[in-house]
């Protein structure tokens, strides 16, 4: 008799919480920086999985299957959070964020132009404090930008995939990436120096 090992190809919902709750929670909290919401998503994942048990084909491990369900829920959350932000007009100048460039010629505005982060050496970047500032700056990004960023950097998702799942166009994708990085960099410069 095989004890319900986590890699079993059969479902064993009695042991889901024991085996996967922490894993799924960690997976969620790195993508959704909200503990309450992350907890709820884990719970919803288990409940949806129970309802969909007959759809489990045994082709993947239990954990992979549960993670796939969770992933869909996370993307739904991104979508909900960013509704209203969905349409980014490529030609429209940033309305909410400051514009870092001169309107007429596209030069850096003096007050926003990059200056070296730390005493001329970029080494200082590897630093706990810097990490904390980075985290804070990321939290300030609009939800849709954050979603795009997370999917690109954490899941290494392809651009096409991200556009499909978040329902944005490829050109919007690059505009978002660009603006997110400009804002992140500016925030770091402001808080680091």
């Amino acid at each position: 008799m095989t004890e319900s090992a986590p890699d079993t190809r059969q479902l064993d919902p009695h042991n889901w919480v024991k085996h996967y709750a922490d894993y799924l929670y960690l997976y969620t909290i790195t993508r959704i920086k909200d503990e309450e919401q992350a907890r709820d998503l884990v719970q919803e994942t288990f409940l949806s999985a129970l309802e969909g048990m007959e759809r489990f084909a045994g082709k993947s491990s239990e954990r992979t299957w549960l993670t796939a369900i969770l992933k869909n829920k996370i993307i739904d959350t991104y979508r909900k959070r960013s509704s209203g932000l969905k349409i980014v007009d490529v030609n429209e100048p940033e309305s909410t964020a400051p514009d870092f460039f001169e309107a007429d010629n596209g030069h850096w505005k003096k007050e926003y132009a990059p200056v070296s982060f730390s005493m001329g050496s970029e080494e200082g970047l590897y630093n706990k404090e810097f990490n904390q500032i980075l985290q804070k700056c990321m939290q300030k990004l609009p939800a849709l930008w954050m979603a795009v960023f997370t999917m690109k950097h954490l899941d290494d998702a392809t651009t096409n995939n991200i556009c499909d799942e978040l329902k944005i166009t490829a050109s919007n994708f690059w505009v978002i990436i660009h603006r997110a990085k400009l804002n992140l960099r500016a925030c770091l410069q402001k808080n680091w120096i």
Partner: peptide
């Protein structure tokens, strides 16, 4: 700076076990 920021973001995402989150 932008490359460095990307590296830092990757690190930040990859090492959540540092602050051992559990339910």
């Amino acid at each position: 700076q932008s490359q460095k920021i990307n590296e830092m973001i990757k690190q930040l995402f990859k090492k959540p076990e540092n602050n051992k989150v559990t339910l």
